Simulated scan of single mutants.
Amino acid sequence: MIHEAVRPFVLREEFERLIHCDEPNATYGLDVPFTVLEGEESIERNLDRDRLIDIQLPQKLDAKKLLAAHQLAAADGTRFTEDVSLYFHYNHERIRVLRGTEYNIKITRPIDQKIGEIIYKDYILGGEWG
C-alpha cells in the first residue's frame, strides 16, 4: 500500500476498503471535471474526458512488481508522476479504480493549502470526519 503525506484527508475507511478490495492492484480515482487536451506549444490532440481518471492515493499494488517497475524506470530514465502509471506501464495488469472523494486533494500549491484549510474546518472539525 502506498500513500503520500500531501493527501492528508483520507479516511480510515478508505484504507480499509482498499485493503479489502478483492483485486490485488487498486487505486482511488475520480472523473476529470474539466477538458484536457494534449500538446506542447499548440493543441495536438483531443482527449476523451469520459475515459480520463484523476488518480488519487492511497494505492495498492504488488510490491515485488512495483519495485521491479521502479528499477526498470530508473534504468530507462523514464519518469512517472505516481506509482499506478509506472506500474501499469511496465506490467500491463488490471488496476481497479475505486471511487475517490473530492476531499482527497493533493496539497502542492498555495491555493491547495487554502482549500485544505476549508476542508479541515468543515470536514474534520465540523464533524464529518469518520
Rank of each mutant, 00 (worst) to 15 (best):
H92T: 01
Q56G: 05
K121Q: 15
L66R: 07
D22W: 00
Y103E: 08
D112Q: 08
E14I: 01
A73E: 02
L86Y: 00
S85V: 10
H20N: 14
R7P: 13
K114E: 09
F88S: 07
R49C: 00
R45H: 11
K64S: 11
P110H: 11
V84D: 03
L67K: 10
L66I: 11
E13D: 14
I95W: 09
V10A: 07
D54F: 00
G39Y: 06
R94D: 07
L57H: 15
Y90S: 05
L125V: 14
G127Q: 12
G29R: 02
D76R: 05
D48W: 10
D31A: 14
T27C: 14
Y90V: 02
A69W: 00
G29V: 02
N91H: 03
H3I: 09
F88R: 13
I43F: 05
A5T: 08
R49Y: 00
E38Y: 11
I19V: 13
I118G: 10
N46T: 09
S42K: 10
Q71K: 13
D83V: 06
G29C: 05
R7E: 15
V10N: 04
I118A: 13
G130C: 10
D31C: 07
R94N: 08
E4D: 05
D31Y: 10
D50A: 15
Q113M: 11
A73P: 02
F80C: 06
E82L: 10
G116H: 03
I19C: 09
S85F: 00
Y90I: 01
E13I: 02
L61A: 11
E4S: 11
D76H: 04
L67E: 14
I95F: 11
R49P: 00
K114S: 07
E117N: 13
L61C: 15
E40G: 14
D122K: 13
H20R: 15
A74E: 11
D62Q: 14
I43Q: 05
D83N: 14
E23N: 07
Y123M: 08
G29K: 01
L30T: 03
G126Y: 03
H89C: 05
L52Y: 07
D122Y: 00
R79W: 12
K114L: 08
E40Q: 11
S42Y: 01
R79C: 12
S42E: 12
T78R: 15
L57F: 15
L66F: 12
R94H: 15
P58R: 06
V6Y: 10
L18M: 04
K121P: 02
G77L: 06
A26Y: 01
I105P: 02
S42D: 08
L98P: 14
L72G: 03
Y90W: 12
I118K: 09
K121L: 01
Q59R: 13
I19P: 05
T108M: 01
N104M: 12
E102L: 15
F80Q: 06
A68W: 02
P58H: 05
L125R: 14
Y123T: 07
G29I: 03
R17E: 09
A73C: 05
P33T: 12
L98F: 15
E41T: 12
P8N: 01
E128Q: 08
K106S: 13
I111K: 14
D22R: 05
D62K: 11
I105M: 11
H3Q: 09
